[in-house]
Amino acid sequence: MNRPTEPAASVVVPAHDEERTLGRLLDALCAPPGRLEIVVACNGCTDATAEVARRYPVTVLDLPEPSKLKALRAADRAATAFPRVYLDADVEITAAGVARLARAVGTDGIHLAGPRRVLPRTGVSRVAGWYYDVWEALPHVRSGLFGRGVLALSAQGVERVRALPSVLADDLAFAEAFDPAERVVVDDVTVQVHPARTWADLVRRRTRVAKGNVQADRAGLRGGGARTAPGDLWKVVRERPALAPKVPVFLAVTVAGRLRARAAVRRGDFTTWERDASSRV
């Protein structure tokens, strides 16, 4: 058991132009009793992200290059404690929730843990909302640890993911590196993941996902359980018939994202971050 002076976990937060959202997250993470070591890796920022981070009792790295992957690596080198919790800067989760996730790993063969995902719908357009209604109902979305913006890893888990090739879909690669018996969704911890609010921003986000999936496939990092098959959609409609009119919207967004990703894939561009601004309003 950790002594009171030891951090309960090290928290790594890569942040690129997140001045609007970072303070909200750090307010929660730095709340008493403040037993988290927090490393914020500002990368290639053109706004006041680093200045916001320096208002809090956290370690701030100000990196010149806008690269989430390099930010994660740099923050990992600066962090000192285990378990290690990786957080997207635009999500909302409490310090108590992070500590609970940290306690869930490292025993009973569990090396990866994530919270229950909540997608607030305030300001989300009807079309975007219909897409997320179907997406959230997919079996692999409900059980998978990708797309939650929060992952807690044991020391052994961190060593395992360090050996993985660097890919755009880092959360997918992390999740797929562990067998189902080694990972867990902690239902009594919630994270708010703010969805894209508009069609254009949703397609941008799906373009990023499509590029990440192609890269993960080429690296052999994505298993069949992390894919959406026609049978999955049929199962969703069979279980929840009210979603049937929304499936065409889901398919249209998916296809639009894949088509938009093709040019980048042909160029071998797996570093450009397709960012949606609407979720950060």
Results as ranks from 00 to 15, higher is better:
92 E>H: 14
178 F>A: 04
99 A>F: 00
274 E>S: 04
270 F>L: 06
26 L>S: 02
190 T>H: 04
244 A>L: 15
276 D>E: 08
117 R>I: 09
239 E>R: 15
17 D>K: 06
116 R>C: 00
27 D>E: 14
149 G>Q: 07
114 G>I: 00
23 G>Y: 08
186 V>E: 06
108 D>I: 05
252 A>V: 13
102 A>L: 13
78 A>K: 09
180 P>G: 08
186 V>F: 06
251 L>D: 02
180 P>Q: 06
40 V>E: 03
243 L>G: 00
143 S>D: 14
19 E>P: 03
241 P>R: 02
11 V>K: 01
262 R>S: 15
164 L>P: 10
221 L>H: 10
155 A>N: 08
39 V>N: 09
53 A>G: 12
76 D>Y: 14
143 S>Q: 13
87 L>K: 03
167 V>E: 03
197 R>Q: 13
195 P>H: 00
212 G>T: 04
135 W>G: 00
203 V>L: 00
62 D>A: 10
137 A>Q: 10
133 D>H: 10
25 L>Q: 05
157 G>Q: 09
229 A>F: 15
6 E>A: 14
145 L>I: 10
263 A>L: 03
38 I>R: 10
192 Q>L: 14
34 G>D: 07
161 V>M: 13
126 R>W: 05
72 L>H: 15
249 V>T: 15
89 A>V: 05
116 R>P: 00
5 T>Y: 14
257 G>H: 06
237 V>M: 12
63 L>C: 11
241 P>Y: 10
28 A>E: 14
177 A>I: 04
273 W>C: 00
275 R>W: 09
171 D>R: 01
268 G>E: 00
91 V>C: 11
247 V>M: 07
91 V>N: 02
88 D>A: 12
164 L>F: 13
240 R>I: 06
246 K>F: 03
73 R>Y: 00
88 D>Q: 12
51 E>Y: 01
143 S>F: 05
277 A>D: 13
208 R>I: 00
46 T>H: 07
142 R>N: 02
167 V>D: 06
39 V>L: 08
21 T>D: 08
174 F>L: 12
239 E>Q: 15
34 G>F: 13
142 R>D: 02
111 H>I: 01
48 A>L: 12
275 R>H: 10
145 L>T: 00
90 D>P: 11
276 D>M: 04
8 A>K: 11
32 P>G: 08
94 T>F: 10
252 A>T: 07
30 C>L: 09
137 A>I: 12
